[in-house]
Amino acid sequence: MANEYLVEVSHLKQYFPIRSGFKTIPLKAVDDVSFNIRPGETLGLVGESGCGKTTVGRTLLRLYKPTDGTVTFNGTEVTDKNIHALRKEMQMVFQDPYSSLNPRMTVEDIIGEPLDVHKLYSTRAERHEKVMELMETVGLNADHATRYAHEFSGGQRQRIGIARALAVDPKFIVCDEPVSALDVSIQAQVVNMFEDLQKQRGMAYLFIAHDLLVVRHISNRIAVMYLGHMMEMADSKELMDHPIHPYTESLLSAVPIPDPKTARSSQRIVLEGDVPSPLNMPTGCPFRTRCKYATDQCAAQRPELRDRGNGHFVACWNR
């Protein structure tokens, strides 16, 4: 097998320079994050608001230039030189369906733009036909092609954004909280659509969400982030049933349990204190300020993400 993984992210860092007075201090939005995604697989990425999930997705796609680290797609390292061609393979669905569509463009032009940019048609008629096909794929009414984005509901807008990402027929899509701006009733529809599309086209997803409830259906594996760091990564079921990291435990205890028979014995764990500012990170383990198991070692040294067997990765000294 040439390469087992479609996307390999290793030691990715993204520091934003923040100017305060005369100094510039780095805001460590993503600090040393590594993960791999197989073809056709879905990796769920969860974490609290502001922990750097969006930044991981955007840096991975080189919408931001990484401070350090590499991203490899299909065996080739992504660089500024080859990124243009790779944009046909990797796409993104954005978090906010309201600001991710240009209000001065019709739906047809929004979905047709990737076709324009990569010259994927020879005649106007072919372009129109392709756009119609895409609209049908995501369940949009073809009559709406000449309308402007502001005339649509949130769910419909997100479908337009998905059609735009699908236009180049990518192998990998970063779905950045594609449903968190939508009504609960519509969330399920859109998540189901993502699943159907994956079955039809065999795409891989990095599916970002801020709670486990949304990702656990769609993901094969789940990664948990905290303050720009990866805390735990394992198969979906394994992570849900046997969380190791105390942060994952607390996240899971907040998820309502649908079936009382499988109810976990543990009580709901409420974290104390606030998330520290990414400008002023704690030394060592980023979670230690809120962790009940924290020891001196946690403050002295950052735990590495280590395999605990069966591809269950955890970054913790004590568990």
Binding site: L63, R87, S99, L101, P114, V117, G161
Partner: peptide, 21 residues
């Protein structure tokens, strides 16, 4: 606005982003 980032993600060139978006 995210639509500018979205255009970049599609691979739209900078002059075209300025012109169209």
């Amino acid at each position: 606005n995210e639509y500018v980032l979205a255009a970049k993600c599609i691979g739209t060139s900078t002059p075209r982003i300025i012109r169209r978006h």
